[in-house]
Amino acid sequence: MFKAKLESAKEFKKVVDTMATLLDEICLQVNEEGVRAAAMDPSHVALLSLNIPRIAFEDYQADEHEIGIELEAFKKIMNRAKAKDKLILELDEERNRLNVIFENQGKRKFSLSLLDLSGATTKVPELEYHNVITIKGDALKEALKDADLISDHVIMRASPYEFKIEAKGDLNDFTAEFSSEDDAIISIEGEEEVKSAFNLEYLLDMVKGVSKGDIVKLYLGNDMPLKMEYSLAGCELMFLLAPRIEE
């Protein structure tokens, strides 16, 4: 069995929106500890990993199950979440469906038909990073939106004291600079200078669910995938994004 209740359907909508911008489908692996999932986007440029520990739920009961979900359909349903709706996710094993229930003044129940994605689990690689930047989510998001005016990719540079996002266009440039003294920065860790370039469209998709008050952790290396982590309403999201390199 699997039945889980979340305090805010509207907050979980942000998680589903973010997943749906990068992925077509995902296989939720549920057990008594919580919900986990990981998948790469169809072009294998980005990976998303989701971890919702059971403590994030108001009620939680689960045996081991794999629940394959078509994300566009799930996103459309979650778009119907209203401000005070609670969200119940419930596996109907007989009909092979996930019931998505909005609970407020009454219950509104959608039944989402499941995909067979068993065996399609993605292993998340352990990459080593020396530079870690912890930054306020809105500052990062605004800098990426600024860069989007100039180019379709950015160079991220980190040193022990500074983090920069640069975009170069044919005519115009953009640079966002954050020092460890700046309000936007919680911390900058690292002993060396590193830089990697990334596609901006993916980056903007990855920060889609981020809003004011969210804290984002960035792990950077030299021509290495970017690792990004943040939490939304107790749901831990982790992304990997492959870099662009000069040939």
Partner: peptide
Amino acid sequence: QEKQLTLDNFF
């Protein structure tokens, strides 16, 4: 010339 790598390059 810039090239987009995939994550398969790192696994």
